[in-house]
Design a binder for these strands. Structure first.
Lengths: 211, 211
DNA sequence: GTCTATATTAGGATAGAC
DNA sequence: GTCTATCCTAATATAGAC
């Protein structure tokens, strides 16, 4: 693995672990086991590393969000879809934990981040419409927009919230509950299918929780 | 006004404006128009100012959250109640924008912050039960818990989210939309009253928005 | 209580040898 | 590409006079 890539990899590791603000260039160099001077040969400091990491995140998120929304999605498909989005956020969680600061410091990233959130929102709208087409939920357009906005917010902050509320940082379990919470939000729009649906996702919840 | 209080007041101002991490003790001294040395006479640095500000927040939030939940709350009461909670968060928004970092640095505050969120959640549960007693909404216990958790999350992160999504920082308007979004979440549990309810809160929304 | 002056340190950054 | 040595700066913190 090239030094350049090792720097990126370890920066991400430390940023996620300790928060970007609490990681110095020397910390990174130590973790990579090179000299600070060498680090500066590859990157002119954190101000260059961060946008580079963001670009990876952006690309992966773009791929993830291009879900195949024309086909009918089963509940399990939806479960997996949300799970994968959460995983992506988890992998770059340092970014989400410091959003205001980071977006303030990098206006270019702010623009692009907003674009990602907008995409996320559109994906949730599409997912909702898919459920609608299958006759699983009934909701008006304003309700749809409002619900999508809410879900987008939960997708954005759930991992933060969980970290704040419980000191421990067990990724999979937290993601798992996040997916469950989100899918539960569709229940009230399901009419008589509601009970079946809740039972189904509760099953997913318990199932994967044990794993 | 005593110097000590002026330091606290201006620290809060700068923290909210620029983020705690971007405000130095010298910045604060400048804003208060005293020397850095003098600042250190009153406080041993930001590490002492922050918990002091948190204590104010904690106290005010405690008062706000002690809502009179036994009486039947009108929709307008609920509107005002949520609005006031948001205002409190807005006044100490620097804290919410840096939650993970700050709670990591001050474990004692982390404990107390979790307690506040738990109170917030209980308040929302109480508010929901109040609507239930009035026959305005129908929901099962798990639904109630899930809805309350969601609303607690929105209460916690809405202002952050809005700042991220729109660069501008217009407090009242953002709070206003937050309240609207939250109340909208009760709609699907209202049965036939739903349309009336949505119309009513839309009215509040447009009304206060013009003001 | 308040000031000025100064010490200390950590982090960011570069020069030059290998 | 990599290292060592070194510099610069911003931020924290203290001492001592007024």
């Amino acid at each position: 693995m090239k030094t350049r890539d090792r720097i990126l990899k370890n920066s991400l590791l430390l940023f996620n672990q300790d928060g970007e603000a609490n990681v110095s260039t020397v910390d990174i160099a130590n973790e990579v086991d090179i000299s600070p001077g060498n680090l500066y040969y590859h990157f002119r400091g954190k101000e260059v590393i961060i946008p580079e990491l963001f670009a990876s995140f952006e690309e992966e998120m773009r791929i993830v969000l291009e879900g195949p929304f024309e086909k009918p999605f089963t509940v399990e498909d939806n479960w997996v879809y949300l799970y994968v989005i959460f995983e992506e956020i988890f992998d770059f969680r340092f970014f989400y934990r410091n959003l205001n600061d980071l977006l303030g410091r990098f206006p270019d990233l702010a623009r692009r981040f907003r674009e990602i959130v907008a995409r996320k929102n559109r994906a949730i709208v599409a997912l909702t419409e898919n459920l609608q087409r299958q006759g699983m939920v009934t909701l008006s357009d304003p309700q749809k927009e409002s619900l999508a906005l809410h879900i987008t917010m939960v997708l954005t902050y759930w991992l933060n919230f969980a970290t704040v509320m419980e000191a421990d940082d067990d990724g999979p379990a937290v993601i798992h509950r996040g997916v469950y919470q989100i899918l539960l939000q569709f229940a009230p729009y399901m009419g008589e299918r509601e009970d079946d649906f809740v039972e189904l996702i509760s099953l997913f919840y318990q199932q994967t929780d044990a794993a």
